[in-house]
């Protein structure tokens, strides 16, 4: 039952987002170099970290699926990856806006975090096409899980590779995404990160609740259909008209 956790998670997200928003715009000091534009940092970086952890979590859940053979884990992995792809899109767009505002270009190749994200995003963009071009549900779950595990390992490896390339070709290092932040900025960042993580957890639970409900409904429908068939077979002699058939469930994913 995913629904039970939904209300506290949603309330927690709302509270944390409000606090984070307040801290970002009224508490954290203006950055000495970047000025007001640095406020994007509190959105962009937590989003990137959470999306990244989402991909990794998707891989771990996929491994649980292959190990336990329980389709529930495949569902969880699917939702985590699906959410991370959407957050990843946000990472790319906000990163691009930040790049335009601070360096004058919509895209910069010397920001390893952003470049790594583009590559990982391009890989995971194939996850859904792969999944939905396999018809057999069992095979679909297994293949998607193999993809998710390989993708999680690749994500880590790719970050190492891009960072190494950046270290050798671009000696100047930007300190926006890390370095030593003042304590008040760091606190704001941590709260923002927590709010983003809570948002992820809430949406993940929400989608799983809806998926679970749809799955249960499908099962009830199938059971009723079977019962109707039995009843029909039993009553055919007594009653010439068959019971109204239940239409098969509309195809849904």
């Amino acid at each position: 039952m995913y629904g039970r956790a939904l209300a506290p998670l949603a309330l927690g997200t709302a509270a944390a987002s409000a606090v984070a928003f307040g801290l970002v715009f009224f508490y954290a000091p203006l950055d000495a170099d970047q000025g007001f534009i640095q406020k994007i940092f509190y959105l962009h970086v937590p989003m990137a970290i959470v999306a990244l952890l989402g991909f990794l979590a998707g891989g771990v859940m996929a491994a649980m699926h292959l190990r336990t053979r329980d389709r529930v884990w495949d569902m969880r992995s699917y939702v985590a990856i699906h959410l991370s792809i959407i957050l990843g899109l946000g990472v790319l767009v906000t990163g691009s806006i930040w790049a335009k505002a601070s360096w004058g270009h919509w895209w910069v190749w010397d920001e390893p975090m952003l470049v790594s994200f583009l590559i990982v995003f391009l890989l995971y963009a194939v996850y859904q096409p792969l999944r939905f071009s396999i018809d057999d549900p069992g095979r679909q779950a297994r293949y998607a899980s193999v993809f998710a595990i390989a993708g999680a390992a690749f994500t880590v490896l790719n970050f190492v590779a891009v960072r190494m390339a950046a270290a050798y070709t671009h000696p100047r290092v930007f300190s926006q995404t890390g370095g030593n932040m003042p304590a008040d900025m760091f606190l704001t960042f941590l709260v923002s990160l927590g709010a983003m993580a809570l948002l992820f957890a809430t949406l993940w639970t929400l989608e799983l609740a809806s998926k679970n409900a749809a799955e249960r409904l499908r099962r009830v429908r199938r059971r009723l259909e079977r019962e109707a068939e039995h009843a029909e077979a039993g009553e055919r002699l007594a009653r010439p008209e068959p019971a109204p058939p239940i239409r098969p469930a509309a195809a849904s994913r």
Partner: peptide
């Protein structure tokens, strides 16, 4: 699938 995977 293959092309992003070979970027490293």
């Amino acid at each position: 699938l293959l092309l992003p995977l070979v970027v490293p």
